[in-house]
Design a protein around this nucleic acid. Structure first.
Lengths: 160, 160
DNA sequence: AGTATTGGTCAACCCGGTTGTCCAAGTCAA
DNA sequence: TTGACTTGGACAACCGGGTTGACCAATACT
């Protein structure tokens, strides 16, 4: 069964399959580079934090998830040593988030791996072709309510 | 922030975002056409059943998930009236699966909607461009252990 | 002051999976 | 025919990443 089969359902699977291939590869490689417990959601969250999300509510807004969900993610990140939190002296309700060196290492490594995989794809497709593909995908994403700066919907599944 | 930004991490988000846009649209439209409780995983499962998976173990193999997971999905499909099961007289261990008319209706509608959305994308991009995009995606998926005929990894997330 | 908003937490739940354990029913070999 | 093996299914517990809903304490607004 050839899968570029001009059916909408197949297109969906192609998109998801490509995503999972990319992300699974990154997670796998990340594990071998000293981050065996890093999950895609962790990466997205730390990126959002680095981009300015400095509290649970803030992170929740940026990831477009509930603050409860954000709190859980934060707990997981703290537990794994990727971030630390301490209550804001100026507003004792807030708990300020800080990324640890380990966390910095994670996104650095992760970014590098993502780019490596993308580079391999670029070799396969050709640079202009991949660029074109990206602008096309951006169109699909662009006309939507989804905010790509807020990829909360990007929860990812398990490796198998 | 422009999102076709030549970064591997962004590429991942583009892929996932496109997938979710497509699928969310289908689920949403499906709801308005009389299938308000249909989830993406249901669609994939029924397609697999229609393609020949006639027992839980069988479905599990085809979807590349555990048989327990398949059993849960089957229970959900039965509950919603999309399929029925009855024990095989020739092998009383097996429980044969049959798709109900309602189930047929679901995949029919779902297929149509998927194709409608794809057609809209085709208008945006141009038919040859979309076809090209599909064959490119197929390459990303093709060199992987993933079996597109067995999209168990295609569990999809929630609408929000 | 008193009300409204904001940040955070607890608890319960959902979905789509996973392991692990177990049994009953079929298959195969001697 | 009997014993070993394989297969189909079910039960229970769990996980990850979310959701609602109820709530409290701290800050902000007028």
């Amino acid at each position: 069964m050839v899968m570029s089969s001009r059916s909408g359902a197949d297109l969906a699977l192609l998109l998801l399959g490509s995503y999972r291939n990319l992300v699974d590869e990154v997670v796998r490689e990340l594990a071998t580079r000293g981050y065996p417990d890093a999950r895609p959601s962790h990466e997205y969250a730390i990126r959002a934090i680095r981009a300015g999300a400095d509290s649970a509510s803030d992170l929740a807004r940026r990831l477009a998830i509930t603050k409860q969900a954000a709190a859980k993610t934060i707990a997981a990140l703290v537990e794994r040593g990727y971030i630390t939190t301490e209550t804001d002296p100026a507003d004792t309700r807030r708990k300020n988030i800080r990324i640890t060196d380990h966390g910095i290492g994670l996104i650095t490594e992760s970014t590098a791996i993502f780019d490596e995989v993308r580079a391999r794809w670029e070799v396969r497709l050709g640079a202009p072709e991949l660029a074109e593909l990206e602008t096309q995908l951006a169109q699909f994403v662009g006309d939507s309510p989804i905010n790509l700066d807020a990829p909360g919907w990007a929860a990812g599944q398990e490796l198998r």
